[in-house]
């Protein structure tokens, strides 16, 4: 199998550009808080929730943009499936490295400015200096969110409106993994906030998070493959 060099490169370069922009934005917000109020903890921590949605949409784009492109360029669905799996497997930890770097840079900034660096959300880690745990938590989280996006993207590509049936499956995957990691959802849509109550209260730990995360990832990949293995490319309605 060809290694998905360009698929990875395209997504990584785009992620770096977004990360730089996001870093500047969070820096500006922190500065704003410092000027008009008091910095009471990490700003990067709540802001980094948005990265999950970026991971989700990366998965969606894999199915909706890259799958048709691969097939139209004479690749098989099997080749795409394998390359997409490798891409997600490597992209999720890469994205996690960027988020972890964000915590590190913020640690330095807050240290210099004398601001506290507390975290406001539930995590597998207890402080922003636990780099290994930060990386592990986000890597698992992004792995699951990206594959959930790919599953939903594949569902909507194949069945159009009928793809809505994949949404509960994607949400279930995210809930299970967040339960194992001890993170919460805090999805910024009113009706979805109730999902927090559905959260699975597992005894979170790194081994459990890793096992559940990888298991969920494998299930997501298998389901997405079942959808795309013979998916026809859409004709535009005429």
């Amino acid at each position: 199998m060809k290694f998905p060099t360009r698929l990875l490169a395209a997504n990584m370069v785009f992620a770096i550009l977004l990360w730089v922009g996001f870093l500047l934005l969070v820096g500006a917000i922190t500065a704003g808080i410092a000027v008009f109020g008091q910095v009471s903890g990490s700003v990067w921590d709540p802001a980094s929730q948005l990265a999950r949605f970026y991971a989700l949409f990366t998965g969606v784009a894999l199915a909706r943009e890259y799958l048709p492109m691969y097939i139209a360029h004479g690749q098989t669905r099997r080749q795409f499936g394998a390359q997409a799996a490798v891409t997600i497997t490597l992209f999720a930890p890469f994205l996690s490295v960027l988020i972890t770097l964000g915590y590190l840079l913020e640690n330095v900034l807050h240290g210099v400015a004398g601001w506290p660096q507390g975290i406001s959300r539930d995590h597998l880690f207890g402080s922003t200096s636990e780099i290994g745990l930060i990386f592990a938590e986000y890597a698992i989280e992004f792995l699951v969110w990206t594959v959930a996006g790919a599953l939903m993207g594949a569902g909507f590509y194949r069945w159009e409106g009928g793809g809505v049936v994949t949404i509960p499956v994607g949400i279930a995957m995210v809930l299970v993994s967040s339960g194992a990691l001890g993170t919460d959802l805090r999805i910024p849509f009113l009706f979805l906030t109730m999902l927090n109550r559905l959260r699975l209260d597992l005894q979170e730990s790194l081994p459990l998070g890793l096992a559940v995360g990888l298991g969920t990832f494998a299930v997501g990949l298998a389901l997405a493959w079942a959808i795309i293995r013979d998916v026809p490319l859409r004709n535009r309605p005429r």
């Binding site: 943009e65 097939i71 139209a72 360029h73 004479g74 690749q75 098989t76 490319l233 859409r234 535009r236």
Partner: peptide, 15 residues
């Protein structure tokens, strides 16, 4: 398939 190319108006290869 690697030796076949179909270009359609749908734009899979360009979008």
């Amino acid at each position: 398939t690697s030796r076949i190319s179909l270009i359609r108006d749908e734009g899979e290869t360009v979008d």
